[in-house]
Design a protein around this nucleic acid. Structure first.
Lengths: 109, 109
DNA sequence: CAACTATATTACCACACAGCAATGAATATG
DNA sequence: CATATTCATTGCTGTGTGGTAATATAGTTG
């Protein structure tokens, strides 16, 4: 497997994508979409954010390929565009659990 | 493997960690550390950032457990604290390559 | 103790962006 | 065509944070 050279430009691209995931609101949207595709209105209701807010987050997620769009009449259906997102989140969760564990260890000493 | 419940609080913790990786400067620092531990001074030279700047990034990376510290006299040696970082970056790179590929496909049509 | 060095911290500025309200664009319905 | 609905876009404000210079802290050396 050939590796990309980690030039500053490539690092910037990678950072850009991590940054998009570095926002609770967007993670919440992605988590909602985990159960299947949803319209913007559905997501507004599910997340409790404003319509404009959700729409902007979805644009960003779409631009970077994290979600895909499907237009149907007045509605726009969004869905997960890359399952690797959850792989990333799982690894982060693993990190979280490690942190909790080592923190408990510190307190126990 | 038991899964963490993705409550808003947990999502915030995950996002916080993605956010830290969502900064080219910090990714560059982590990439430098890939070859082995380095002092702050080494990193300042290697990255070309200011000393205060590097120090602040390192503090943040350390707080969230991405790097570990080892003090030795006047010097502080930093090293990667969790190899999973590279796993995360590899997945992101895979995403990047997919993006490039599909973009090429679009142009080819 | 005084002078020096490596790192951390503080204060500040500039900029990016999340959230919100208002408006616009596209499509459907009567 | 007029109206209503869904979503996208724009303009605005407040907050957060990256970069930098100045200063503080900790450790070393003489």
């Amino acid at each position: 497997m050939r590796k990309l050279a980690l030039t500053p430009a490539v690092l910037a691209l990678i950072a850009e994508r991590f940054k998009v995931l570095g926002e609770p609101a967007r993670l919440q949207i992605l988590d909602c979409l985990r159960r299947g595709e949803m319209t913007v209105g559905d997501l507004v209701e599910a997340t409790g954010f404003g319509q404009a807010n959700d729409s902007k987050h979805l644009q960003l997620l779409h631009t970077l390929g994290f979600v895909v769009r499907r237009k149907e009449g007045l509605f726009v259906h969004y869905a997960i565009g890359d399952e690797r997102i959850f792989q990333l989140c799982d690894i982060m969760c693993g990190r979280l659990e490690s942190e909790v564990k080592s923190r408990r260890k510190l307190l126990a000493v």
